[in-house]
Amino acid sequence: MGFKLLSKLLVYLTASIMAIASPLAFSVDSSGEYPTVSEIPVGEVRLYQIADGVWSHIATQSFDGAVYPSNGLIVRDGDELLLIDTAWGAKNTAALLAEIEKQIGLPVTRAVSTHFHDDRVGGVDVLRAAGVATYASPSTRRLAEVEGNEIPTHSLEGLSSSGDAVRFGPVELFYPGAAHSTDNLIVYVPSASVLYGGCAIYELSRTSAGNVADADLAEWPTSIERIQQHYPEAQFVIPGHGLPGGLDLLKHTTNVVKAHTNRSVVE
């Protein structure tokens, strides 16, 4: 069995187990497998329904001669939608809004960016022009300005110390501490036991640490421990890039980060 097929099978099995364990909360999309990078042309966006009122959005972007996937989250909030992270750029984010209108038909009224990198804030200006209120932590807003990236308009308070959590509509926002970046936030959907790890969490097929220019490698494993301790009931975990899975993604990420750190020390 090929690795790609095995990865998709694991996603399907995880979703099936969740649907059985929580039949009222989960209505997993039966329309197909989780979209992969090879299936999404740059400039297009796919939506994948995880649970009743919960979707991931998947886009792709060219970077350094390669094409990478990027995940975000959409959560229903009454007759409105909360968006977590842009679709990595203005063109993708405009396509995301169009796809949401086509498939869901509810307005996106608020959006949260989970850290300051372009795959999370690139497209904020498109959201703002569409009347979406954009939010991020003060740290993310400051770092985005320093980096020359787009800056969300509103500040999220109460997320300055490791372990801080605040309720934001249908989700809980959690600051686990520094990891992929010093400002990275985690998003949890309690009604569906869905954990969105953003770039602080890796997919299972990833074996290298990737972009760690703004990471705190020493603190990252401790931050992941905080996530595990705060959300032990999480059933569906979405990484910032690639295929979702279960809580095993947290341990896998820790292993990859520690291996990278150990290699760096040896070198």
Results as ranks from 00 to 15, higher is better:
Ala95Gln: 08
His154Asn: 14
Ala200Asp: 14
Pro23Val: 11
Ile58Ala: 03
Gly158Pro: 14
Gly148Asn: 13
Glu150Ser: 03
Ala98Phe: 02
Asn184Phe: 00
Trp220Met: 08
Ser70Gln: 11
Lys91Ala: 12
Asp79Gly: 12
Tyr34Gly: 08
Ser113Met: 01
Glu219Ser: 03
Thr207Ser: 10
Asp214Gly: 11
Val124Pro: 04
Leu24Phe: 04
Val126Leu: 06
Arg141Ala: 12
Gly131Tyr: 15
Ser264Tyr: 15
Leu249Glu: 14
Gly240Ala: 12
Val45Ala: 08
His252Ile: 09
Thr114Ser: 10
Tyr12Gly: 09
Arg120Ile: 15
Glu39Arg: 07
Val45Gly: 09
Gly123Phe: 00
His117Arg: 00
Gly177Asp: 01
Ser181Asp: 02
Ser62Ala: 05
Asn184Tyr: 01
Thr261Met: 08
Thr222Asp: 10
Val212Tyr: 11
Leu73Arg: 01
Gln228Gly: 11
Pro176Asp: 01
Val121Gly: 06
Thr261Ile: 09
Leu159Met: 04
Gly105Ser: 04
Trp88Asp: 01
Ala215Ile: 11
His180Ile: 00
Lys258Ile: 14
Asn184Ile: 12
Leu47Asn: 13
Thr114Lys: 00
Phe3Asn: 14
His241Leu: 04
Leu217Pro: 06
Asp119Val: 08
Glu225Val: 11
Asp85Glu: 13
Gln228Leu: 11
Gly122Lys: 04
Val265Asn: 11
Ile186Asp: 02
Ala218Pro: 07
Pro35Cys: 12
Gln228Lys: 02
Val124Gln: 14
Phe116Cys: 07
Thr93Ala: 06
Glu203Ser: 01
Gln103Asp: 09
Ser113Glu: 02
Ser62Lys: 06
Arg110Asn: 09
Met1Pro: 05
Thr254Met: 06
Leu204Val: 10
Lys102Leu: 10
Gly2Met: 08
Ile17Asp: 02
Ile104Val: 13
Ala200Gln: 14
His115Leu: 00
Ala59Cys: 04
Ser7Glu: 12
Ile74Met: 06
Leu127Thr: 15
Asp52Ile: 02
Leu159Trp: 10
Ile84Phe: 15
Phe168Tyr: 09
Asp29Thr: 08
Val146Arg: 07
Asp164Lys: 05
Leu24Tyr: 11
Lys102Tyr: 14
Gln61Met: 05
Ile104Tyr: 15
Val171Cys: 01
Leu6Ile: 05
Gly240Thr: 03
Asn71Arg: 06
Ile74Tyr: 01
Gly89Pro: 01
Ser223Ala: 08
His154Ile: 15
Ser223His: 09
Ala87Glu: 00
Pro232Arg: 12
Thr93Ser: 13
Leu5Phe: 13
Leu159Ala: 06
Ile201Pro: 00
Ala192Asn: 04
Val54Met: 07
Leu143His: 14
Arg167Trp: 02
Gln235Cys: 15
Asn184His: 03
Phe3Ile: 03
Ser70Leu: 11
Leu173Lys: 00
Gly197Pro: 05
His260Asn: 02
Glu267Pro: 06
Ile50Met: 10
Glu33Cys: 13
Gly240Gln: 03
Ile201Asn: 05
Trp88Pro: 00
Ser62Tyr: 09
Asn92Ala: 13
Ser205Pro: 04
Pro23Glu: 04
Gly2Ile: 12
Thr109Asn: 04
Phe116Ala: 07
Ala144Lys: 08
Glu172Gly: 10
Glu219Pro: 11
Gly242Asn: 15
Ile17Lys: 11
Thr109His: 15
Gly105Asp: 14
Gly210Pro: 13
Glu99Val: 06
Arg206Val: 07
Leu127Ala: 13
Asp216Pro: 08
Asp52Glu: 05
Asn262Gln: 07
Glu147Leu: 06
His252Arg: 05
Thr222Ser: 10
Ala19Thr: 08
His115Asn: 00
Leu195Asp: 02
Pro41Tyr: 09
Arg110Val: 12
Ala200Val: 08
Arg128Asn: 01
Ile17His: 01
Arg141His: 14
Val54Ser: 07
Val67Thr: 12
Ala130Ile: 13
Ile84Tyr: 13
Pro138Ile: 15
Val187Tyr: 01
